[in-house]
Design a protein around this nucleic acid. Structure first.
Length: 418
DNA sequence: TAACGCCTAAACAACT
DNA sequence: TAGTTGTTTAGGCGTT
């Protein structure tokens, strides 16, 4: 998994030195966008023990960890509303957070200059999810990315093209008609298709899980420089998969009816935490290294064998091999569902561009029926279940992480004695 | 080696 | 008219 890495700024030589001027994320001026100030200006409750105890030998890893730490966790925190309210943010017992100290390290400066090891799909997803309305115009997506990833501020404008390309091509994102979402301004609002949100979440998890494990268990061989950790390094090395699941649940909590803002795409269908398969968690280690749509399809297929999955209704269907038979160009990016299967084999064949470039194509090509089906899951009585489930996960994450921290600190003491 | 995922660039049309 | 937005195509690279 490293197309991003492969196209690192080093290769492209797209990292001018002016990045140094805006090392701190908080130093980035408020971007355009509708994001609340809390998302940008929140203090750093996330300083990890690693930030403080970073050794020079781990600089390579810390660069990436800090990158994720700084760029994602501090901002992608359950909507960014109250980051410090989460157990995951408090367990360090350092509410203030040595952000400045952290940012003073050269590794973090480097991390901010590095291209984020996340696909544009996930960047867009995070941007949209962090927006109060769960929808953003392209310009605000630009702004969010610029805000959180200063790398792009000095990168050639091609990345914007890539963003638009992703929005258009990636089925995870839906365009909201201007009449619904935005009266003024140019362009449409973009939101995350709730049907694909589990996929995106899964992808997000797949980004960080492998390395999280790798960090919990010291790697036998030094990590390759070309493949930095792609994970959300939550609270140092003490995270386990369940913790990250909890973190994901926290993230999802932001989408819960009682917590999330109106989603123009699907205001009534938050991710159903009461359904364990809503968040596709794979236990297959192989899938941890692949957040591709195929992996997700396999994953959903697997999970669907034991229970009814939301993706079973609207997502990839078992044995669906569309992406293999279809020219990869047609929607090769992003996460696929059986949306295409709804259309039959028509989509399995190359289609003239005229079909897709229809003025109404973007709004018509997405089946409406599935929306109605999904609404069934959005029962008001599920709200409490959602909250309880997420709360339990939060609690579990906090306790577990604290326990792990204690273990970790005890281990550190042992080492210090030696 | 092929398939796949992702990124990048480019072109074009539509819109503001 | 210029800039932005959205769509599409093509090609390259890395991973599996």
């Amino acid at each position: 998994m490293g197309p991003i890495i492969g196209m690192s700024p080093d290769k492209k030589a797209e990292t001018p030195g002016k990045q140094e001027e805006r090392v701190g994320l908080r130093g980035v001026s408020g971007g355009p966008g509708t994001l609340p100030e809390a998302e940008y200006g929140a203090a750093s409750p996330l300083a990890t023990s690693l930030d403080r105890g970073s050794g020079g030998s781990e600089d390579e890893e810390l660069t990436n960890l800090n990158w994720l730490h700084e760029n994602l966790l501090q901002n992608f925190t359950l909507g960014g509303a109250q980051p410090s309210a989460s157990p995951l943010f408090d367990i360090e017992g350092d509410p203030g957070g040595p952000l400045n100290a952290s940012l003073s390290s050269s590794s973090q400066r480097d991390s901010l200059k590095s291209k984020p090891p996340l696909s544009f799909s996930l960047l867009i997803y995070m941007a949209i999810e962090q927006s109060p309305s769960k929808s953003l115009p392209v310009k605000d997506i630009y702004g969010w990315i610029l805000q959180h990833f200063p790398y792009f501020s000095s990168a050639p404008t091609g990345w914007k093209n890539s963003v638009r390309h992703n929005l258009s091509l990636n089925k995870c994102f839906r365009k909201v008609e201007r009449s619904l979402g935005k009266v003024n301004g140019k362009g449409s609002l973009w939101c995350v298709d709730p049907e694909y949100r589990p996929n995106l979440i899964q992808a997000l998890k797949k980004q960080h899980l492998p390395a999280a494990h790798a960090f919990c268990t010291p790697p036998a061989s030094p990590p390759r420089a070309s493949s930095p950790p792609r994970h959300l390094f939550l609270q140092g090395c003490s995270l386990q998969e369940s913790d990250i699941d909890a973190a994901t649940a926290m993230m999802l909590l932001n989408s819960a009816p009682g917590h999330h803002h109106a989603n123009p795409c699907d205001p009534d269908s938050p991710l159903d935490l009461s359904r364990p398969d809503s968040v596709l968690v794979s236990s297959d280690p192989k899938q941890d290294h692949n957040y591709s749509s195929m992996a997700l399809q396999r994953c959903s297929s697997r999970s669907s064998s034991s229970s009814l999955s939301s993706l079973d209704e609207g997502g990839p269907s078992p044995g669906h091999t569309r992406s293999r038979t279809r020219p990869r160009r047609a929607g090769s990016e992003g996460f696929h569902s059986d949306e295409d299967s709804d259309l039959g084999d028509d989509r399995a064949r190359p289609q003239p561009s005229q079909h897709r470039s229809s003025p109404l194509s973007s709004s018509v090509k997405r089946p409406v029926g599935k929306r109605a089906r999904r609404e069934v899951t959005a029962k008001p009585e599920l709200d409490e279940e959602l909250k309880e489930a997420a709360g339990s996960l939060l609690h579990l994450a906090g306790i577990r992480t604290s326990m792990e921290l204690n273990k970790h600190s005890a281990k550190s003491k042992k080492l210090n004695r030696k």
